[in-house]
Nucleic acid binder design. Structure first.
Lengths: 123, 123
DNA sequence: CTCACACCTGGAGCGCGCTCCAGGTCAAGC
DNA sequence: GCTTGACCTGGAGCGCGCTCCAGGTGTGAG
């Protein structure tokens, strides 16, 4: 169970220092340890949680939904069913997003091929 | 070569009326026909262009890059090489985005499975 | 002709997700 | 002990991509 400075945590999580503080302010991060002087000390658990937040962000979950998830997580084991439901709903949204992205990516490739054919015809 | 009212165009393109006007203002749409009274009349070409814009948006291209693309498109055939280059760069970005999304989606599914196993153990 | 509703313009406002700042405090190396 | 650089807080500001508004005009049905 290591301890990490804010900058180390930023480096490892990929969130900026400001973002880490912001996340704490809005309740996405809670109970972050402090030195006697008041500076944050992050734990492996915190890094794990940040990894989950990163995963949710990268798959397009809006902040307020992440807050809801964090809130559930704070209530302990009893909320696991709710949490898994939230994650499943989000996974479904991510699937739709991936499908849309792939479809439009296909159109994009078509468009590129079309332009290439125009280029080939008039050299 | 049909003509479409703004609301019809909105319906078909999926962009709101406000967005259509906004796109015209910032130069993403140009030369939109008008009635003698000043109301917009969209053509099939416009709809096609809007389809392309939709594709670029959905694959995450930022507005200012789309503006650059639109600008190139206005200069005619001579810019096709530049346009195709821009699209290829964007396609590469979209590929990265898809890869990230899929990776994180995988983590999400793992997390869900983990929660499900916790649920299964303590019923 | 009238009415209702779609549309027009310019500009302000908004929601999101950070990011930056001022003005201070803490901690580690010399 | 001093310096230096990392860190603290509260709050303001920002960039993006729209979205909304007020106040007015166009247009098509009846």
């Amino acid at each position: 169970m290591s301890a990490y400075t804010p900058s180390e945590t930023s480096r490892r999580s990929g969130f900026s220092l400001d973002t880490l503080r912001y996340y704490e302010r809005i309740g996405l991060l809670s109970e972050i340890d402090r030195t006697p002087g008041g500076q944050r000390v992050f734990s492996d658990d915190d890094l794990g949680w940040l990894g989950l937040l990163r995963c949710l962000r990268d798959t397009g979950m809006p902040i307020n939904q992440m807050c809801r998830f964090a809130e559930l997580a704070r209530t302990g084991e009893q909320s696991i069913a709710d949490r898994v439901e939230l994650l499943r709903a989000h996974a479904a949204a991510a699937e739709e997003q991936m499908a849309l992205l792939e479809r439009q990516y296909g159109h994009l490739r078509e468009k590129i091929r079309y332009y290439e054919s125009v280029l080939a015809e008039t050299p």
